[in-house]
Amino acid sequence: GKMTGIVKWFNADKGFAFITPDDGSKDVFVHFSAIQNDGYKSLDEGQKVSFTIESGAKGPAAGNVTSL
């Protein structure tokens, strides 16, 4: 299901971020390909987002990341 959280930090050079979920679970890795914005895919620290949890090769990662 959809979860919500806050972007903890975003590394534009490497194209990934971490989200701190609102439910208090541990921070979730985000690859820029999961960001659903049109055009430039970036996130801002402190931004509120919704996302799903996908199981990636290196463990859980956020999918369908959308700005709220």
Rank of each mutant, 00 (worst) to 15 (best):
G1D: 09
G1N: 10
G1A: 11
G1Q: 12
G1S: 11
K2I: 11
K2D: 04
K2G: 06
M3V: 07
M3G: 04
M3R: 09
M3H: 07
M3A: 05
M3K: 08
T4N: 04
T4Y: 10
T4K: 04
T4Q: 06
G5R: 00
G5N: 00
G5K: 00
G5W: 01
I6G: 01
I6W: 06
I6K: 06
I6N: 03
I6C: 06
I6T: 12
V7Y: 01
V7K: 00
V7A: 00
V7H: 00
V7R: 00
V7D: 00
K8R: 12
W9Q: 02
W9S: 05
W9K: 04
W9G: 02
F10W: 11
N11C: 15
N11V: 04
N11I: 05
N11Q: 05
N11F: 08
A12F: 09
A12H: 09
A12R: 14
A12T: 08
D13R: 09
D13N: 08
D13K: 10
K14Q: 05
K14A: 05
K14L: 10
K14E: 06
G15F: 06
G15E: 08
G15R: 08
F16V: 14
F16Y: 13
F16Q: 03
A17H: 00
A17P: 00
A17K: 00
F18Q: 07
F18S: 05
F18A: 07
F18L: 10
F18W: 14
I19A: 00
I19Q: 00
I19C: 01
I19S: 00
I19W: 00
T20I: 09
T20H: 06
T20L: 05
P21T: 04
P21G: 01
D22I: 06
D22Q: 04
D22P: 01
D22H: 04
D23P: 01
D23H: 03
G24V: 01
G24I: 01
S25E: 04
S25F: 03
S25Q: 04
S25G: 12
S25D: 04
K26Y: 06
K26M: 10
K26W: 05
D27T: 06
D27P: 08
D27V: 06
D27R: 03
D27E: 08
V28N: 00
V28H: 03
F29G: 02
F29S: 04
F29K: 07
V30A: 03
V30P: 00
V30E: 00
H31C: 15
H31W: 15
H31D: 11
H31V: 09
F32S: 04
F32T: 04
F32L: 09
S33Q: 06
S33N: 08
S33R: 06
S33I: 04
S33D: 07
A34I: 07
A34T: 08
A34W: 13
A34G: 06
I35W: 15
I35P: 02
I35Q: 02
I35D: 03
Q36S: 09
N37P: 11
N37T: 12
D38R: 05
D38M: 12
D38V: 09
G39T: 07
Y40R: 08
Y40H: 09
K41D: 10
K41L: 13
K41P: 10
K41W: 13
K41R: 11
S42N: 12
S42W: 13
S42D: 09
S42I: 10
S42A: 11
S42E: 09
S42P: 08
L43C: 07
L43N: 01
L43H: 02
L43Y: 05
L43I: 09
D44F: 15
D44E: 13
D44A: 13
D44T: 14
E45D: 05
E45V: 14
E45L: 15
E45Y: 13
G46P: 01
G46R: 02
G46L: 03
Q47F: 06
Q47P: 01
Q47C: 13
Q47K: 06
K48F: 08
K48V: 09
K48T: 07
K48C: 13
V49N: 00
V49P: 00
V49R: 01
V49W: 01
V49A: 01
S50H: 06
S50A: 11
S50Y: 11
F51N: 00
T52K: 06
T52A: 07
T52G: 04
T52E: 07
T52Q: 08
T52C: 14
T52W: 12
I53W: 12
I53H: 06
I53Q: 06
I53T: 07
I53P: 05
E54F: 05
E54R: 05
E54L: 06
E54W: 06
S55V: 09
G56A: 11
G56W: 09
G56R: 05
G56L: 08
A57H: 12
A57R: 07
A57S: 12
A57Y: 11
A57P: 14
K58S: 15
K58G: 14
K58F: 14
K58Y: 14
G59R: 08
G59N: 13
G59W: 09
G59T: 07
G59C: 15
P60A: 06
P60G: 07
P60D: 14
P60T: 10
P60W: 01
P60L: 06
A61E: 15
A61P: 09
A61M: 11
A62L: 10
A62K: 07
A62W: 05
A62C: 15
A62Q: 12
A62H: 09
A62I: 09
G63K: 09
G63F: 03
G63A: 14
G63W: 02
G63S: 12
N64D: 13
N64Y: 05
N64H: 08
N64I: 12
V65T: 13
V65N: 15
T66M: 03
T66C: 15
T66P: 15
T66Q: 12
S67H: 14
S67M: 05
S67P: 05
S67Q: 12
S67E: 15
L68V: 15
L68R: 15
L68E: 15
L68H: 15
